[in-house]
Amino acid sequence: MKGLKESKADLLLHPVRMRIVQSLINGKGLTVQQMQQRLTDIPQASFYRHLKKLVEGDVIHVLDERPVRGTVEKVYAIQKESVNLGPDELKNVTKEEHMAMFMKYIVTVLNDFERYIYQEDADFVKDMAGYRQATFYATDEEYVEFLQTIGKSVRTLIENDPGDNRKKRTFSTIVTTDHSPSS
């Protein structure tokens, strides 16, 4: 596989790389040290290897460089247009490729859940943690309005910085549609 360029989906759906991207999702630039403070369980060598792949894949770019104690400290940010798979990228994806991408996504969700559940002080009630599924009926217009409402709320929260009694929370979504006649 060496020499082959990874697809954007492969770059984004790796569990470690997804967490690095998520640390930058609020649109603010972070240094390596700031990212590592948010991702303390990722070994440094692994972190640098995956950061390099994200930079080479144009998912993350160097926003700024500043001199610090005789070296250059880089500030990284997301290439906004690179973090989502758009209609052009999705229209030619086969069912098998979708299943492979979905499995990578599920592994990331499982890893996040495992990190949470095995913390010494994990408490579903106190932490307001959980997993839920809701089935509903909506027209395309109603569904678009629903997505826009959620998107607006999530964007507001994503802009929060750590601190001020804020807890890091992860919100994962999976959406499917039933095309059977009885639905």
Rank of each mutant, 00 (worst) to 15 (best):
K2S: 05
G3N: 07
K5S: 01
E6A: 11
E6N: 12
S7L: 03
K8F: 07
A9Y: 04
D10V: 08
L11G: 08
L11V: 06
H14Y: 03
P15R: 07
P15K: 05
V16M: 02
R17M: 00
R17Y: 01
M18V: 05
R19V: 01
R19M: 10
R19H: 01
V21Q: 02
L24P: 01
I25E: 09
K28Q: 09
G29K: 09
G29I: 06
G29C: 03
V32I: 14
Q34M: 11
Q34A: 15
Q34N: 13
Q36M: 09
Q36A: 06
Q36L: 13
Q37Y: 14
L39F: 03
D41T: 11
D41Y: 11
P43W: 06
P43I: 07
P43F: 05
S46I: 08
Y48T: 13
L51S: 11
V55G: 03
E56L: 13
V59C: 12
V59N: 09
I60G: 04
I60A: 07
L63N: 14
L63T: 15
R66W: 14
R66P: 14
R66V: 10
G70M: 02
E73F: 12
Y76R: 13
I78W: 14
K80I: 09
N84L: 07
N84H: 12
L85V: 03
G86S: 11
D88G: 03
D88T: 06
E89G: 03
V93H: 00
T94I: 00
K95G: 14
K95P: 04
K95I: 07
E96W: 15
A100F: 02
F102V: 15
F102E: 08
K104M: 10
Y105L: 00
V107L: 10
T108W: 02
L110Y: 12
L110H: 10
L110T: 09
F113C: 12
F113S: 13
E114R: 07
Y118A: 12
Y118Q: 13
E120P: 06
D121H: 05
F124N: 07
V125W: 01
V125I: 11
K126S: 15
D127V: 02
M128P: 11
M128A: 09
M128F: 12
A129N: 02
G130S: 04
Y131M: 11
A134E: 11
F136T: 08
F136E: 06
F136W: 13
T139Y: 05
D140W: 00
E141N: 04
E142F: 02
Y143M: 13
V144C: 11
E145D: 08
F146H: 15
L147N: 10
G151D: 05
K152F: 00
R155N: 14
R155Y: 08
T156L: 14
T156A: 09
T156K: 10
L157C: 07
L157R: 10
D161W: 01
D164Q: 04
N165H: 12
K168Y: 06
K168G: 01
T170Q: 02
F171Q: 04
S172D: 03
T173R: 05
I174T: 08
T176V: 09
T177A: 07
T177R: 10
H179K: 02
S180P: 04
S180I: 08
P181K: 05
S183Q: 05
S183K: 07
